Simulated assay, not measured.
Amino acid sequence: MPQPTERADRILDAAGELMIRLGYRKVTIEDVARQAGIGKGTVYLHWRTKERLFEALILRASAELIDELAADLRRDPREIQPHRFLRTAFLATQRRPLLRALVTADAELLGSLADSPARAREQQITDRYFALVGKHGLVRDDVPHLVYAINATTTGFYTMGSIKPGLATLDDEAAADVLAHTVQHAFEPDVDPDPDSLASAAAEIADLFDELNTSYRERIYADPESERG
């Protein structure tokens, strides 16, 4: 597998700057090459289409977020508790415009990438996460359609500003605190979790994140020739 290169990351940095400023539909490979200070053909040495380039950009942002979450879990297993985990994920996402656009399905910014494969992969991880915290007793067992309820609740915090623009807004830290309070009191047991369960669940999820990131990076920096056929 080709290793990540400084040139590839410089191209992705340029693509990200342009995408945030102009939106996916308006950015061309020529624009990206000019922004990166290279020739157009050099971009195609790394990604054979504009779509592959920008999918790699989104996957790189996702990999950075997942690395951050895994590091937090290994530093403090209590971060596996849903109210803490979702608070951290919310703030980490809000700091990354491309991931914020992905979560809210912002078609104006992402164009056709609003349906990026990254969304399906992220949902698979979300499902695995909730299966694990359920197995370890970190969520209540009397909430109907628990995963749906938590997903709906969390999504509301990401989309509130666009859906209800006239509503008084909170800064990201305040919104994250409200999210954590809501999740803890609506979906978690009243009893303190067992430390061994926290440690076991945190280690399992962190390992899962590492596995996911390996597959992400293989796709981000894949040799274009390996995808032909």
Rank of each mutant, 00 (worst) to 15 (best):
T155Q: 13
I11A: 01
E55D: 14
A70Y: 01
Q124A: 13
W47L: 01
V43N: 03
D9H: 12
V143W: 06
R87H: 15
A131W: 03
R100I: 07
T214Q: 08
V32F: 08
A206S: 12
V43M: 02
D76K: 03
V178W: 10
S197N: 04
P97M: 03
D72N: 12
E6N: 09
H46F: 13
P82D: 07
F209E: 09
S162L: 13
R60C: 03
R25V: 07
Q123L: 15
V43L: 00
F54P: 06
M1Y: 04
L167A: 15
L110C: 03
E225C: 05
R140L: 08
S197P: 00
H83K: 09
Q35K: 11
I20K: 10
Y158I: 00
R100Y: 10
F209W: 10
Q35I: 06
G229M: 04
S215D: 07
P82Y: 06
E218Q: 13
D115N: 09
G41M: 11
E227K: 15
T42I: 11
T159M: 14
I125M: 12
A101Q: 04
R7C: 02
Y148R: 13
H181K: 09
R7M: 12
Q35H: 12
Q124Y: 04
A107K: 15
R128C: 08
D172F: 07
D207M: 05
V133R: 11
R128I: 09
A114H: 14
D171G: 05
E218G: 07
R217C: 11
V191K: 08
D76I: 02
L73C: 06
H145S: 13
G39E: 09
Y44E: 13
E68V: 08
D223W: 00
R48G: 13
G16L: 00
V183D: 02
L22T: 08
Y216A: 07
R219T: 15
L65C: 03
I80G: 02
L12T: 01
M160R: 15
G111R: 01
K26N: 12
P117R: 04
A149C: 03
H136S: 08
E64F: 08
A8I: 09
R48I: 06
Y44W: 09
V32M: 02
V178T: 11
R217A: 06
T93L: 05
L146H: 09
A118G: 06
H181R: 12
A222I: 11
P195R: 07
L198Y: 12
A89E: 12
D194Q: 09
L73I: 08
E211V: 15
D192G: 01
R48K: 14
D115L: 05
A56Q: 11
P189I: 05
V183F: 03
I125P: 03
L170M: 15
D72P: 05
D210A: 08
I38T: 10
I220C: 00
A149L: 07
T5I: 05
D223L: 02
K164V: 11
E218S: 05
R60P: 01
G23R: 07
R100F: 14
A201Q: 01
Q81V: 12
N151H: 08
L132E: 13
I20W: 07
R10T: 07
V178P: 08
A199V: 12
A71D: 07
D172C: 00
D194G: 03
M1F: 02
E68Y: 13
G229F: 05
T154M: 13
H181I: 04
G23M: 11
L167Y: 14
A63W: 11
I38L: 09
V133Q: 06
E204W: 03
Q184V: 00
